[in-house]
Design a protein around this nucleic acid. Structure first.
Ligand SMILES: NC(=O)c1ccc[n+]([C@@H]2O[C@H](COP(=O)([O-])OP(=O)(O)OC[C@H]3O[C@@H](n4cnc5c(N)ncnc54)[C@H](O)[C@@H]3O)[C@@H](O)[C@H]2O)c1
Ligand SMILES: NC(=O)c1ccc[n+]([C@@H]2O[C@H](COP(=O)([O-])OP(=O)(O)OC[C@H]3O[C@@H](n4cnc5c(N)ncnc54)[C@H](O)[C@@H]3O)[C@@H](O)[C@H]2O)c1
Lengths: 219, 219
DNA sequence: CTTAAGTCGTGATTATTTTCACATATACAC
DNA sequence: GTGTATATGTGAAAATAATCACGACTTAAG
């Protein structure tokens, strides 16, 4: 498709750049250098220039980047003009938080419907999003390609199978289970317990002294 | 300190291995091969063997790994025997979810206290964890070195400064703000909106066909 | 017009991580 | 015992990502 040569590491940073460019524009700034952007997003300025360069020459030497132009370019590249519908599976602690938040700001994704197994939740709405029974998944989940999984770990495999059978192509998995999917389905695991444990491990085993070359961030 | 030669990528996988080894032990399994473990955690078996090898020869050729032994080894390595106290800043949608969950299973971290600016929340408890007023941060935050940040983005910088001044050394940041900290403080950003956007970007631009070499997961 | 300061885009280098592939050792069946 | 299947640990290669460093160009001031 589009640009299959763009490194995954770069692709993951694009939404970050986009957000900060929006901030800059709202502040009324018309130009920005890779150095300035670097300070804002905490990514090395050479990395930023390299990232941008995969899309061609977006800046001007001696000047920097035009905020308006760059923003427009990324809007197209990140498909900000077309909404992607998302389904949320499991309206518990985490799921409820996501429904209330709903990723609305500067974002092209929207949770459109939710599912739960608890009859007390079914039929209600949170943040304006309707909650259906998980048994009605196949019926209600029309054309949605992306799902957020926030159910108990022991339900993860079974539910994933149903999602995949119904045509889901991307899953943001918050359960500790490492779910199995066919090759054409993409899964991103966000494992909060592990993130916390890893942070503590780094804290204890990789002390960041003034001696060690600056490395404030890992994620 | 301990083993400064262990790659960060490896260190991040250790808690994952530990969790699945626990599962295996609970299932009564006494031995496991890198291949089996690979299927469970979705990490290439060569990578697993390489990861383990940084800690010496933990397995036996032709046999695999002894679950009991490996588990014991990682328990020590990951300091599972000593609890690390964590403070949670901002008891809103996300913060409340975390307090209810509290990372209890197979885990050496525990949220010990929480702070919020909302007087209605101050003085109450969630999941048994007391919520204090953010004004009392310096007084209550005794010896805690790790904080979870779940406050509005525009409060992030100010609050981070206070946390750092009080001696916090590691921050799990859920706000979209890219906070600035001294070199000796570690920050992991978990940016849920960006994770979702990146997933959608990959979905649209990196189609996973049967042609493409299997690459089901990125995170 | 000339010069100084600033900034990009990128070839080259370095660092990090993953993967291949195989010599070597073990287990276990018979 | 012997033979075969199995699985580790690791040198080497490949893949991926980050960083250095500089030529080329832009701006703006005098
Ligand atoms: N809450 C946290 O802070 C946190 C942190 C790390 C990981 N997690 C993981 O995220 C997942 C969700 O956590 P939570 O705290 O929101 O759990 P929760 O128990 O509060 O919510 C789970 C929800 O899923 C519903 N459910 C159960 N089975 C279902 C099914 N088959 N289909 C649809 N819905 C179903 C339940 O009715 C419930 O509403 C868990 O796997 C948990 O391990 C949560
Ligand atoms: N909820 C989500 O699904 C979600 C998703 C992505 C990112 N985030 C980010 O996570 C953060 C928290 O999100 P949320 O939905 O829980 O927000 P929220 O508004 O529900 O909660 C924020 C809480 O912080 C408290 N607070 C405000 N200022 C404070 C201060 N100075 N000190 C201490 N507490 C203070 C508020 O009283 C409130 O209880 C935000 O930055 C948000 O952008 C949330």
């Amino acid at each position: 498709m589009d640009q299959n040569k763009i490194p995954q590491a770069t692709a993951k940073r694009l939404p970050l750049y986009y957000r900060f460019l929006n901030n800059l524009q709202m502040q009324g700034k018309t130009r920005v250098s890779s150095k300035e952007l670097s300070e804002a997003v905490k990514v090395d300025s050479a990395t930023i220039r390299r990232d941008f360069s995969y899309f061609g020459a977006l800046g001007k030497k001696g000047y920097g980047y035009n905020v308006e132009y760059l923003l427009g370019f990324f809007r197209k590249t990140l498909d900000q003009d077309e909404m992607t519908d998302v389904a949320l599976i499991g309206v518990g602690n985490l799921g409820t938080a996501f429904l209330n938040y709903n990723f609305t700001k500067n974002n092209n994704t929207k949770i459109k419907l939710a599912f739960d197994a608890d009859p007390n939740k079914v039929g209600t709405k949170i943040g304006g999003i309707p909650i259906y029974h998980i048994d009605d998944l196949e019926e209600k989940l029309d054309d949605v390609k992306v799902a957020i999984l926030t159910i108990p770990a022991n339900e993860a495999d079974r539910t994933t199978e149903r999602l995949v059978a119904k045509g889901i192509k991307a899953i943001l998995n918050f359960t500790p289970a490492r779910i199995t999917v066919p090759d054409d389905v993409r899964v991103h695991h966000i494992d909060l317990a592990i993130e916390l444990q890893a942070l503590v491990y780094f804290l204890k085993h990789y002390p960041l002294d003034n001696l060690v070359p600056s490395k404030e961030e890992v994620h």
